[in-house]
């Protein structure tokens, strides 16, 4: 069901990402983000952390924005956050996603201070700015297992 069977040796070639028959472009689980994708397979949300500055970063960060150190480590996010921004999508990018429309994508602010793009699911409350959001994992229309946030 969940598709990211990630082979590191393939990353430079790019793995075509598809939603049903529609290509979504190149999905590239690059070496620097592999631990994020492995975490998802374990149903854990992994983010980057600088031990010198005790600051958390987006899983894609390579060097600390404060001290410039490349010694970032992976930490498991607690999974609690708030809705920062959102949009309910009525016109989907492809036939596959249209099956789930309307759906809500947005930016979540984790309690660690990191902002991530995600899918918001109204459960049990409505999606609005600053509403509490908690981590879950769902297979979305793209057929990928992804970190989503339940709101309310």
């Amino acid at each position: 069901m969940s598709e990211p069977a990630i082979k590191l040796e393939d990353w430079a070639q790019g793995i075509p990402m598809r939603a049903g028959p529609v290509s979504l472009g190149l999905y590239q689980p690059s070496p620097e983000t592999m631990e994020y994708w492995r975490g998802i397979e374990r149903r854990e949300l992994m983010i980057r952390h600088c031990g010198h500055c005790n600051r958390f970063f987006h899983p894609k960060r390579i060097v600390c924005s404060d001290c410039g150190s490349p010694d970032l480590t992976w930490k498991k996010a607690a999974g609690n956050g708030k809705v920062y921004s959102f949009s309910e999508i009525h016109r989907a990018p492809s036939e596959a996603f249209a099956k789930g429309a309307p759906y809500i994508n947005g930016i979540v602010r984790l309690e660690e201070g990191v902002h991530l793009f995600t899918r918001f699911i109204p459960d049990p409350g409505l999606v609005k700015i600053d509403a509490p959001a908690r981590l879950d994992f769902r297979v979305l229309e793209s057929n990928w297992l992804l970190p989503v946030f339940l709101v309310g």
Partner: peptide, 21 residues
């Protein structure tokens, strides 16, 4: 492609994040 596209965004919905704020 890794951190946004798999969730099914469209260009309007990405700008809409800014509109929302």
């Amino acid at each position: 492609p890794q951190f946004e596209a798999p969730f099914g965004p469209t260009t309007p919905s990405l700008y809409a994040q800014v509109a929302c704020r």
